[in-house]
Amino acid sequence: MSEAHLDTAAHMIAHGGNLHEAAQRYGIPWDAWIDLSTGINPHGFPVPPVPAGAWRRLPEDDDGFAACAARYYGAPDAQHVLPVAGSQAAIRALPALLPVLLPAQASAARVAIAPLTYGEYAPAFAQAGHVVVPLDIASGTLPEDAMHAVVVNPDNPTASLVGRETLLHWHAQLAARGGTLIVDEAFADAFDDPQANSLADTTGRSGLVVLRSPGKFFGLAGARCGFALAAPPLLATLRARLGAWTVSGPARHAVTHAFADTERQRAMRTRLDGESARLGALLDSHGLAPRTTPLFAWVVHARAARLQDALASRAVWTRRFESPASLRFGLPASEDEWRRFKTALGQAMQELE
């Protein structure tokens, strides 16, 4: 990633889940595919019947939804939680709310972002006037001239995980410069101890933002609901930027129910641990050396484009990345999908030989 303003107006940012596009490209009916292109839990939490009032009434900020999220995530209280229309809404809005110029200088502020991570962050910061510089997660150090930093933890797609103490150290460094650390914990819920590396409980500190999403672990991506956790002054500014009614009544109902279902949460984490191990073992049996989280596996492979194509011709859709050449695999949704994926992967690997 070059130290420059990124021009993103000319192209759309690629994401997984684009199954209709794959169906058209390969001439295979949409409902015949195994979609492994996202890290969304294929065993989504059930949504109870939605009360009629959730459709008829406008959502109200004092309905207890923020407090429910604060309890689930371990934030200090409801004043430190802002429901948003998916964490994507906060990703697009936050860069414009953070300082762009370095103190007492005319140069633009630098924001450190890993070269391969969730693809929406770098364009959003560049469009707001920041300069994006590479963040080397493995080194454990921030660029000396960075004013802000973004860490997706665990990372999507590389599965790297930064420890809590390192994150707190980075936050202290950035806060001393008048900057901000943004930690995206969209995939944290699937771990056995979701709070082990989370900074949700520290979001009373200035210069810290934690983003959470029920879309991945709970399988509620279609609800378009997320949460920004931060000190109240920043959340007040973000709320003013986003406007009213950011999360619909039916979405609030579904997410509240999922947060309360602690028994299903425990059982689901156990299930995902087993399925993640199964996926890792299958990929490893073909020499693909995966790095895994409970919801997806990432594989670096010199012929990733060819492997994606070979799998797609067999109605298995994956997410491909360019640098390094790699694929991300989500979890199959059923035993039939596991069987079909195992067969397709074996055939595709033979085709690459």
Rank of each mutant, 00 (worst) to 15 (best):
T256L: 11
L101K: 15
A236T: 13
A305W: 01
S313I: 00
A236I: 04
A122W: 05
S37F: 09
T237G: 02
V132S: 05
R212M: 11
D261L: 02
T202D: 00
A106G: 14
E21T: 14
R25W: 05
H171N: 10
I91T: 08
A200R: 04
A221D: 14
D309F: 05
M12L: 15
H286P: 01
P49A: 15
I137E: 10
M147T: 09
A289G: 01
C68H: 07
A348Q: 07
E144A: 15
L242C: 10
E3W: 00
E185W: 08
H130G: 06
R266S: 11
A10L: 11
V210W: 07
Q127E: 15
A9F: 11
L279Q: 11
D184L: 08
A32T: 09
H169I: 05
Q79P: 00
A149V: 08
A4P: 02
L101D: 12
Q265I: 15
A106M: 06
S313W: 00
L82D: 12
G74A: 02
V150R: 13
L98K: 12
L97W: 09
P48H: 08
A344W: 05
A138I: 01
R271K: 06
Q350H: 09
W170Q: 12
D31I: 08
T246R: 15
R71G: 01
D261M: 03
N41F: 10
A124N: 02
V132M: 08
C68V: 06
L220P: 00
H80K: 04
A85R: 15
L181V: 07
T270Y: 07
A124P: 00
A305G: 03
L94T: 01
A297K: 04
G119R: 09
E335S: 14
H43S: 14
D63W: 13
L58R: 11
K216D: 15
I34W: 05
L327E: 06
Q88K: 08
L174E: 08
K216C: 10
A221Q: 08
A106V: 05
A196P: 00
Y26E: 03
R110D: 01
V162T: 15
M1F: 09
M1S: 14
A200D: 01
P143G: 10
H15M: 13
A124T: 06
A244G: 07
V247L: 11
E185K: 12
A348C: 10
A260I: 02
E165T: 04
L36A: 06
L168Q: 11
L19N: 01
H148P: 15
F217Y: 01
E185V: 09
A78M: 05
A172L: 04
L135W: 11
